[in-house]
């Protein structure tokens, strides 16, 4: 009956998306239990906060953990809104010619992987569908492992790929922005060999690549320094190379000054990655059968945001009530 009420014309626009998704994961029964517990927990925090009593730090931790865990187990998948900032990257890759070369720099470590690895995988899949040639590199020591994981993830879908002809991996070089400053004008000076010590000149796909602008497009995916900002400063600015980026959400707002003049698009955090996954699935329906990692994150992410916002609202209501009481007693 409650479900019928929520699905009525009045409430339907608000609640139908939730009911259409709760049947994933552990099933509808678990989903209902989760939502009931969620509302009960939030209600308890509200009551305690309004009464002016402290909610212990560890109780907040526990509730946050249970909220996210419940949302993950429920398997909520919510629709994603596309934005032009992400679309620009998709369209740029879509419009490249077969055989064009793309430089993919994965500048992050495992702590950025949940947000950034889905971007790297989706962009790689897109490039390979378009028969573009990918050169992987990284400015982070930990990036080598991330590249290895991306290649392992995409390789089974493209068994015909030949190393050195369709893709290559030049790996990591220490030196941060010094590496970028050099490869902007002379790629081989810093990367004379690939990650396995093979001389770059012997890789067919690297013929004609002397500096970064020789790549048709650069996609820098990063979560800190050195990362996207440094790519713009040391490569795009002096060489005029065309670049798009994928940033960890924590650094995405700081990169807006470079869009669209210095980089033509940006994927920000899981939201950006999920948008790209959506575009890829629409353009290449076969990816509908694969796991869309970032899209899966967005459901629990939404629930976590709601919980956090409710905490802030409750705390502020309590703050104003206390202020009012103080004013009345004064």
């Amino acid at each position: 009956m409650i479900q019928a009420l929520f699905l009525s014309p009045v409430f339907s626009p608000l609640f139908s998306p939730l009911f259409s998704v709760v049947s994933h994961g552990l099933g509808p029964v678990f989903s209902w239990i989760f939502w009931i517990l969620f509302v009960a927990g939030v209600g308890w925090v509200f009551w305690r906060t309004i009464k002016g009593r402290e909610v212990e730090r560890r109780v907040i931790f526990l509730m946050m953990g249970l909220t996210v865990a419940g949302a993950v187990l429920t398997g909520i998948v919510l629709p994603v809104q596309e934005t032009v900032v992400v679309r620009n990257i998709f369209d740029t890759i879509e419009n490249l010619e077969e055989g064009d070369k793309v430089l993919l720099s994965l500048d992050y470590d495992p702590s950025g992987a949940p947000e950034l690895q889905p971007m790297a995988i989706a962009v790689s899949q897109h490039c390979l569908e378009k028969k573009l040639k990918i050169c992987y590199m990284t400015l982070w020591g930990t990036g080598g492992a991330m590249i290895a994981d991306v290649i392992t993830a995409i390789r089974p879908d493209f068994p015909e790929l030949v190393y050195g002809e369709d893709y290559c991996n030049v790996g990591y070089r220490a030196g941060n922005e010094a590496v970028l400053k050099v490869i902007a004008t002379d790629f081989r000076k810093t990367f004379p060999t690939d990650v396995s010590g093979i001389v770059l000149d012997s890789l067919p796909m690297m013929t004609g690549v002397t500096a970064c602008p020789d790549f048709s497009y650069i996609v820098a995916i990063g979560s800190g320094r050195p990362g996207i900002k440094e790519w713009v400063e040391y490569v795009v600015e002096p060489s005029g190379a065309l670049m798009g980026s994928g940033a960890a959400a924590v650094s995405a707002p700081q990169l807006y000054p470079y869009y669209p003049q210095q980089m033509n698009g940006m994927m920000g955090g899981s939201k950006g990655a999920s948008e790209y996954e959506k575009m890829l699935r629409r353009g290449y329906p076969k990816y509908g059968e694969f796991r869309a990692q970032a899209t899966e994150i967005m459901g629990p992410q939404t629930v976590a945001h709601v919980f956090l916002m409710l905490l802030i609202i409750f705390a502020n209501i309590s703050f104003f009530l206390a202020k009012k009481r103080k004013g009345a007693s004064a």
Partner: peptide
């Protein structure tokens, strides 16, 4: 070892952000 430790360390911040927001984020 390194990957899970690194990711878990940073994910702890999700809990601390929640607690800190509840305690200190006021429209003063």
């Amino acid at each position: 070892v390194k990957a899970p430790l690194s990711a878990s360390m940073y994910s702890l911040l999700a809990f601390f952000i929640a607690s800190a927001s509840y305690r200190a984020f006021r429209a003063k």
